[in-house]
């Protein structure tokens, strides 16, 4: 009897000790997991903050609308809102943005609500991007900003696919004439891409300003990216400058 109970208590004590040890072990494991997870979170948070500070996508320091030398403006400089749009004549998203905004922005500009500058440059490094932007400048110089803006709109309305085939220079001349340019005033300039150097400096000016893609939109000097799709972006842009 006495023997048995002594054995029982010893067994009980051993069980208690084992439980205690298991408890301590679980505690140690929990602390370890917590510590490792905490360390990882600290690393992730730190890395995120560093990365955020290094993200330059919203830092575009471009000349305000109307004061650059590489675009065409619509509206009055005294309008309460100003918009700068960097674009490539071949970029499909620019084409979508133009479809969704060009007439509305023109109306808003006429109403004195917004001052818009379109700045074409050669982002995609294609022959068409260069030819179209050069033709744009030829038309701007020969026929003035209104015809150049119309020419710009016509090019987007009939935009070729990014993968080609690209239209020839006669097509560009026809568009310019359709926009109101005199054929004799623009034909040789468009055909010989006489404003190639201007396109190069427009492109350098855009990349120096920090423009990394097209369309890049600045509203009152700040990069505007509000919208998941180009259509959303266009709608939000229009309501931002109403």
């Amino acid at each position: 009897m006495a023997n048995k109970s002594a054995r029982d208590t010893r067994a009980e004590r051993a069980a208690v000790a084992l439980k205690e040890q298991q408890r301590r072990e679980r505690r140690r494991a929990t602390l370890m997991i917590g510590g490792v997870v905490l360390a990882m979170l600290v690393i992730v948070a730190g890395g995120f903050l560093i990365n955020r500070a290094r993200d330059t996508s919203a830092n575009v320091s471009a000349a305000p609308a109307g004061s650059g030398s590489y675009g065409v403006t619509i509206g009055s400089k005294s309008a309460p809102n100003s918009v700068v749009i960097y674009e490539d004549f071949l970029c499909p998203y620019c084409g979508e943005l133009e479809k969704a905004t060009h007439s509305q922005l023109a109306t808003l500009a006429d109403q004195g609500k917004v001052y818009v500058e379109y700045r074409p440059f050669n982002l995609l490094q294609t022959d068409y991007s260069v030819a179209a932007a050069s033709a744009f400048k030829v038309v701007l110089d020969a026929s003035g900003p209104q015809v150049a803006k119309k020419f710009h709109d016509l090019l987007y309305a009939d935009q070729p696919a990014e993968s080609g085939p690209y239209p020839d220079s006669q097509w560009l001349v026809d568009k310019a004439v359709e926009a109101g340019a005199k054929e004799s005033a623009v034909k040789s300039g468009i055909e010989n891409e006489t404003q190639k150097a201007w396109v190069e400096s427009a492109t350098k000016s855009a990349t120096d300003a920090g423009v990394r893609g097209t369309p890049t939109i600045l509203v009152n000097g700040k990069v505007f990216q509000d919208g998941r799709t180009v259509d959303e972006l266009a709608q939000n842009l229009l309501s931002a400058v109403q």
Binding site: R52, R54, D55, T56, S57, R212
Partner: peptide, 8 residues
């Protein structure tokens, strides 16, 4: 190296 393009 290029967070801006990662965002893009």
């Amino acid at each position: 190296p290029d967070p801006a393009s990662s965002v893009q």
